[in-house]
Design a protein around this nucleic acid. Structure first.
Lengths: 186, 186
DNA sequence: ACCTCATAATAGATCGGTCTACATATTAAA
DNA sequence: TTTAATATGTAGACCGATCTATTATGAGGT
């Protein structure tokens, strides 16, 4: 793949991610993706012969990797898992508020929309969440925490839930409340 | 409104709720709603002159009330808030698994899809979540729990997050793990 | 006769997807 | 080094299906 092709492909994925975060799978209409990315329809099906589902799947995976990397960076700058959780809540809260309550979790909306109807997309979402759970579990186990598996899933659920409530209320309050309380969990 | 009209209206709301739980706002196409409910298209616009958004809004509110009532019933049969939370997780887990991982939270998908684009629907979702938070807060305060506000939001976030992960993984595991850990929060 | 409600035909927009034509590189042969 | 052949992308018209919404008409109960 030449450099030009790579650029076009990335512009498509950028636009898809952006639109997905705002309104999920159905919020990322191909017409919108094309308009936002400035690439013609034909290029889309050249780079993603599997059509919309393939492009969305790659976008979700990409969004998941980006968050994963950001969390790993935070993890190195912080003493324990409790402060990591708070730092993640702050980071995601900033991102959410700065985007006008549009950019929450890049996986959640697609997961809820498509988990029941599309096996491939359900698998992608499950895989991304699984990788995040793994990161948290390893970190907790390294801290010598017992029940690391249960706690990792609980922390992830808490963050995802807080993000959902924050979007629904268009307010940081749920994130702040959870941040205050998450310490007792660890 | 006569009895016949009431029935039609309820059949429409039933179908809308069912479809929304499976795939959110966009998963509830009007063609599917009228096919599932057996009512003609025109009746829909007679009972919901505001169109799809009005019908979805009422469905979400209705779904929220149903869950709210179920939780209130559980609350009477249980000693403290910790066991209430576990009971709710079990109830929702049963519902989710029995529906083939389709019926999770009747609000979450619409909230994530529409919170950024539709003010009226965002308000409805915020209102339903607010009422659930209120129920939990009152219950916690009655137990004499300090920080009832923060804890109520945290418990709700935890349940919503666990439900999201369970749908994404098509597995009860996240619900079970959270149920085991939620006690330490209370 | 009046209001409530049911019914179906249809409009107009938008959906994801396919198709063909064209431009630009890259490689191979002369 | 020029030319031919092939691979890589770009570009947009077009398709059938589906979307939400509107309309006109008439049945049914009070």
């Amino acid at each position: 793949m030449g450099q030009k092709g790579e650029e076009t492909r990335n512009r498509l994925l950028d636009a898809t991610q952006e639109l997905i975060e705002g309104g999920g799978y159905s919020g990322a209409g191909l017409n919108q993706v094309i308009a936002a990315s400035g690439t013609p329809r034909g290029s889309l099906y050249f780079h993603f012969p599997g059509g919309k589902d393939q492009m969305v799947a790659e976008s979700v995976r990409r969004g998941g990797r980006e968050i994963g990397r950001a969390v790993e960076e935070l993890a190195e700058a912080v003493p324990d898992t409790a402060s990591l959780a708070v730092a993640v809540l702050t980071l995601l809260g900033d991102r959410l508020e700065a985007s006008g309550w549009r950019k929450g979790c890049p996986v959640a909306t697609v997961a809820l929309e498509m988990a029941a109807t599309s096996d491939p997309l359900q698998e992608v979402c499950s895989e991304v969440y699984g990788s995040w759970e793994g990161m948290l579990r390893d970190r907790l186990a390294a801290d010598g925490h017992p029940e690391a598996g249960d706690v990792a899933v609980t922390v992830l659920a808490l963050i995802e839930g807080a993000l959902l409530l924050a979007r629904a209320h268009r307010s940081r309050e749920p994130l702040d409340r959870v941040a205050r309380r998450i310490v007792t969990l660890l």
